[in-house]
Simulated scan of single mutants.
Amino acid sequence: MTQTRSLVRRAALAATAVSAAFVLAACGSDDGSDTGAESGSAAGSGAQPSASASAEDTAGAHNDQDVSFAQGMIPHHQQAIEMAGMAADQASSAEVKDLASRIEKAQDPEIKTMTGWLESWGEDMPSAMPGMDHSGHSSDSGMPGMMGKEDMDELMKASGKDFDTKFLTLMVEHHEGAVEMATTEKGKGQYGPATKMADDIITAQKAEIEEMNKLLGKD
């Protein structure tokens, strides 16, 4: 009889232990669920940077128009800088010299920026620099406003008031070409910094065109 009671007591204790184990397991399951939720939340937080990275990739994406803009505007700017560089020694007007200086200061950093874009995209640099070798024509290069050899040679030989007139006349045409190129980029480009630069070029060079026309005595 005593042995039977002992067996019953052991069975009861075993049942109690099993129940306790189930309770603990249930609690652990609840905790696990909470942890899972937290992990899910953390995963959600972890997904956020991925979304941000994706947004950055989209913002940094570029298309063929962006490449064409940079490859065309670099030599276009280089020619403007070469033309502006002549003004220091050949111009007679302080206004023309000041304008030429501003053109150099504005466009040189833009050349460096666009060069950096092409390098980062793995694209080729412009193979020819029409402004530097005086061989470019807008009809050949496809870049509106580019001066040909004859125009550049005449400007190099000019001095005084004659230079001022030639410089302003040619630079108005050159700026109009740049505005045309920038307008195309603004409408068809995808790369944010490039379309922003295009917008800046349009604003700045339209203002300079107006300034140069006034110096030429045009309304």
Rank of each mutant, 00 (worst) to 15 (best):
M212I: 06
S120Y: 08
D89A: 09
L99G: 00
G145Q: 09
F163L: 00
E119Y: 06
G148T: 01
N63G: 05
D31F: 14
A87M: 01
S33W: 10
K186Q: 15
S39D: 14
A100K: 01
G136K: 04
G145D: 11
D151H: 12
T183S: 13
S159K: 08
A20M: 05
D199K: 15
G46N: 12
A106L: 03
A21D: 04
I209K: 02
S135R: 03
A20D: 06
N63R: 00
E180G: 13
G32P: 02
I209P: 10
Q78T: 03
K157T: 09
G116E: 00
E38Y: 10
K105C: 00
Q205D: 05
S141G: 09
A15E: 08
G85H: 13
G131I: 03
D66A: 02
A178G: 15
T203V: 11
E82C: 02
D108K: 15
G136I: 06
A37F: 05
G122T: 02
Y191H: 13
P49H: 13
A37I: 06
G116Y: 02
V23E: 04
A88N: 12
A80S: 07
E211H: 05
R10V: 07
E56S: 14
S139H: 12
G28V: 08
A84S: 15
A128C: 07
E38D: 07
S159W: 01
E82Q: 03
A194K: 08
A207D: 09
H76F: 14
L99R: 05
A87K: 00
I81N: 09
V96I: 11
A91Q: 01
S52M: 15
K206H: 11
I209T: 06
A88F: 09
H62T: 09
A37N: 10
A21G: 05
Q48M: 12
T16H: 02
A178R: 13
T35Q: 14
E110F: 12
D219E: 08
G28F: 10
V67S: 03
M146W: 11
S92F: 07
G160H: 13
I74P: 04
V23T: 10
G32F: 06
V96P: 01
G142T: 06
I111E: 03
E150P: 11
K188F: 06
A207K: 12
V18Y: 10
S93R: 14
D34N: 09
S92A: 12
Q107P: 04
K97S: 10
G72H: 14
S29E: 07
H77D: 09
Q78M: 15
K157M: 11
S159I: 00
D124V: 02
G192P: 04
A91T: 05
S92M: 10
T2H: 13
K186F: 13
I209Q: 03
D133E: 04
Q190L: 14
P75C: 03
P75Q: 05
H76N: 14
D124I: 01
D153C: 01
D34F: 07
S33V: 06
K157V: 04
S33G: 10
M197T: 12
H175E: 04
A42S: 11
Q90P: 00
L155Y: 04
E123C: 01
M132Q: 11
L170P: 00
E119I: 14
E119G: 07
G148M: 07
G60N: 14
